[in-house]
């Protein structure tokens, strides 16, 4: 089994606050890794470190992706190499049209891959197809990016972007939060459809519900900026019964 990403002894801070305190993780090609942990554990900070968010300063350790050390790469370079994050809180950007934004992003990626850009008509065909599959309203194409979208619509829009950009490494940061059961099923279905032997998922959650729909290959428990435990789905059951404290170091 080949490695997609290897995170070694990662230390990171936001402002003066040390948040990640030595993370070691290996994420495998074609696998789904669930990251669980209580609020404030550092899950979002870890995903921000992976995508290169400017708020997160890596002070020690490395992130190696597809055998390249990306620890200091610009966010857009990481994205073009196939790293995608579905945001826990997608931002609203008034005045930037949803379709225009997505086409710009897709064509940036195509350029990176040495492919010709899609014109507006070609892109619209692709977009409409995906929107239909996801059961989204077609008028969302013409709206501003995430502006006035409900919580569920924002999450679906993240999934839509994932489908269009076809990344290799997908981080879903609490994609399940704020979704009702129908929306959760829809989102899970879309994610399952994207599971391929070449794509890696990192699903961050603190509820087990989504893991009933998307079966993870590995579960990692994160607390206080460290990985406490790595295992299979059985960890989720133990967490369910006992809570996070069972994994605390003694």
């Amino acid at each position: 089994m080949s490695t997609m990403m290897k995170i070694k002894d990662l230390h990171a801070q936001i402002g003066d606050k040390q948040i990640l305190k030595g993370i070691d993780l290996e994420l495998l090609k074609g696998k789904v890794h669930a990251i669980m942990g209580p609020n404030g554990a550092g899950k979002s900070t870890l995903s921000k470190a992976i995508v290169g968010h400017p708020d997160v300063e890596v002070t020690k350790g490395t992130i190696v992706y597809k055998d390249k050390d990306i620890t200091d790469w610009e966010p857009e370079e990481r994205a073009l190499e196939g790293i995608f994050m579905a945001f826990q809180h997608p931002v609203e950007i008034p005045g930037v049209n949803n379709a225009y934004f997505l086409r710009t992003a897709l064509n940036a990626k195509r350029k990176h891959l040495g492919l010709p850009p899609l014109n507006a008509a070609e892109f619209l065909r692709l977009l409409k197809e995906k929107i239909k599959e996801l059961g989204m309203r077609e008028e969302m194409i013409h709206r501003s990016l995430n502006e006035g979208f409900s919580g569920g619509e924002k999450k679906l829009n993240e999934i839509l972007q994932m489908e269009i950009l076809e990344p290799d490494f997908v981080i879903l940061d609490e994609i399940d939060s704020g979704l009702d059961i129908d929306a959760l099923k829809k989102v899970s279905e879309a994610i399952n459809k994207m599971r391929t032997p070449d794509r890696t998922f990192m699903i961050i959650t603190h509820y087990r519900k989504i893991l009933d729909y998307i079966e993870p290959d590995f579960v990692h428990v994160l607390k206080n900026g460290k990985v406490l435990k790595t295992g299979g789905i059985e960890i989720v059951d133990a967490l369910e019964k006992e809570g996070y404290k069972i994994f605390e170091e003694v």
């Binding site: 966010p75 857009e76 994205a79 997608p90 950007i93 930037v96 997505l102």
Partner: peptide
């Protein structure tokens, strides 16, 4: 808006182009 700028860059849009998109959206 730094968060908006980051959002666009995370989707592979180069920093300068992302800034321009935000400036245009402002106007």
């Amino acid at each position: 808006d730094e968060e908006a700028l980051f959002y666009l860059r995370q989707r592979g849009i180069a920093k300068e182009q992302a800034k321009e998109m935000l400036v245009l959206s402002f106007l």
